[in-house]
């Protein structure tokens, strides 16, 4: 890839992903959920209307510098993480960070959001962040075990190499690491923050938690950040378990499939409480992930 093309992808890839998740995926999810509820549902372009409205609102309320820049930094962290994840052969920044760096850039984004919410001086926001970090602790246990299984088996920490290994052998990660794949499916909703794990941002819980003080362009920024986060999670899963893709189109198709799974779970399950979510994450998903790791260590051989 030439430098020019790389830079072009660096700029366009986050934009593409934001549009994909924030507009297309959200539109689809509204429609699908509505049909499950036997409603007609909003038009498929409803997210566009919402975003345009948010950005063009005249009243924007800020709570200071940290409030503003926490959000911006979170978006930046997620964007850079996205550029390190190979998407159908496109990975402009993968030379600057491996899977561990991606994991840490996700933390970077969480911390940015936490700071922004904390700076809003609203106890509901603080409560939301506390719940968000606890949920992180919950799903991170199986998630780390899943990643370790793959990194140990293939003896690399590079995501590009993990994808290449699946391509070279023709065996998808989901087949090579079946137990890890089960664990991953079980914690996918937690990683995405959808039901049954939406106690962080659910409006009925703590007045939308970290988002309580966000309005106008700030809410638009939050939507962008959440879209990026979802894109990071989906593309990571596609790369780890479904062999990535040879071009961006197929990659996006695979992402769509995974996203629809999340939409279906979100539509039919009730919400966990925080401690229920923690206990859930630390039981079956962790056992499966642990089994996957042991299996990877046993079958590694030479």
């Amino acid at each position: 890839m030439t430098i020019g093309l790389q830079i072009a992808w660096m700029i366009s890839l986050p934009v593409v992903m934001i549009l994909l998740v924030a507009v297309v995926f959200t539109g689809i999810s509204l429609k699908v959920t509505a049909r499950i509820d036997r409603r007609y549902g909003p038009p498929i372009y409803q997210p566009v209307i919402d975003l345009v409205k948010l950005v063009s609102l005249k009243t924007n309320v800020s709570h200071g510098v940290i409030f503003d820049w926490g959000l911006l930094v979170a978006i930046a962290g997620s964007s850079v993480a996205l550029l390190m994840i190979p998407m159908g052969g496109i990975h402009p920044l993968s030379g600057s960070g491996d899977l561990l760096v991606i994991l840490y850039l996700m933390i970077f984004a969480s911390v940015g959001l936490g700071l922004s919410a904390g700076a809003s001086e609203n106890p509901n926001a603080s409560m939301g962040v506390s719940r968000k970090l606890m949920l992180g602790l919950g799903y991170e246990v199986p998630f780390i075990l899943i990643l370790l299984a793959m990194m140990t088996y293939h003896h690399t920490t590079s995501l590009v190499a993990l994808v290449a290994a699946q391509r070279a052998t023709g065996v998808l990660g989901a087949l090579r690491f079946p137990l890890s794949a089960v664990a991953a499916i079980l914690i996918m909703p937690a990683l995405q923050g959808v039901r049954p794990f939406d106690f962080v941002t659910a409006p009925q819980e703590v007045a939308s938690g970290p988002m309580v003080e966000l309005g106008g362009k700030y809410l638009a920024l939050m939507v962008i950040e959440q879209s990026l986060h979802t894109a990071v999670i989906l593309s990571l899963m596609v790369d780890l378990f479904f062999g990535g893709a040879t071009n961006l189109g197929i990659f996006i198709l695979k992402m769509t499939g995974l996203f629809l799974f999340g939409v279906l779970v979100n539509a039919v399950y009730p919400r966990f409480r925080v401690e229920q979510a923690l206990r859930y994450c630390w039981r079956w998903p962790t056992w499966f992930a642990l089994g996957g790791l042991i299996m990877a260590m046993v079958t590694k051989g030479g």
Binding site: N124, V212, E213
Partner: peptide, 13 residues
């Protein structure tokens, strides 16, 4: 696009 208003400390939802 939209200049933000700085909220007072007690001005929260």
């Amino acid at each position: 696009t939209a200049r933000a208003r700085r909220a007072a400390r007690t001005d929260t939802y």
